[in-house]
Design a protein around this nucleic acid. Sequence first.
DNA 1: TTAATTGCTACACTTTTTGTAGCATTGCTT
DNA 2: AAGCAATGCTACAAAAAGTGTAGCAATTAA
Lengths: 95, 95
Amino acid sequence: MSEKTSSRPIMRLLDALGQKWALRILWELRDGPMNFRHLQARCDDVSPTSLNRRLKELRELGIVEHEESGFQYSPAGKVLAQQLLQLHQWADRYL
Amino acid sequence: MSEKTSSRPIMRLLDALGQKWALRILWELRDGPMNFRHLQARCDDVSPTSLNRRLKELRELGIVEHEESGFQYSPAGKVLAQQLLQLHQWADRYL
DNA sequence: TTAATTGCTACACTTTTTGTAGCATTGCTT
DNA sequence: AAGCAATGCTACAAAAAGTGTAGCAATTAA
């Protein structure tokens, strides 16, 4: 993956969200800010290496930010999260 | 990943979509059915091994199906795809 | 019967992720 | 000030996943 960082916004987004744990991390942030270790626990104890890398990527895209209260959605990230939360309804209906 | 296949629908979905290329594959299917090699080309020439595994997982979840005309969304998959297409608008606005 | 196209597998190599330990910094608390 | 717990994060060897290339088996077309 990450062959040559496409410049198209949608491709950059799909590249980022298409990495392992990325979607799950965003999903687990839905209840508000939380710290690194808490988030890690919520993500089935994903390795800190992976969590750290994913968070870095999500921060670079401006989806996640790191404040005193912990990791949380950025304003733009909130909008994106709204769309991801719809996946829940889909899953409950079709899976 | 794929530690112990959670039974919750949303987790099964996030597990599947959280694999490399899964989102991208769904994205590239938006223009209608296409065959394996065409899809592979659209996905930056992802390896056939990966493409095949992802397609298998997406088919097992009932998101994608394989007809004479090629790989395409299932009826349920169409609904999901509708939601994923919204990512495009988000990306164009915020990235 | 030959040739082309299909989905897909084999396999050695590379990249990514994992799991565990622990470091460095910050902010208590005594 | 000294100890201590909590924080984000890094190191590193082992395991897992992905890659790239070749090519197989089945189907269709010529």
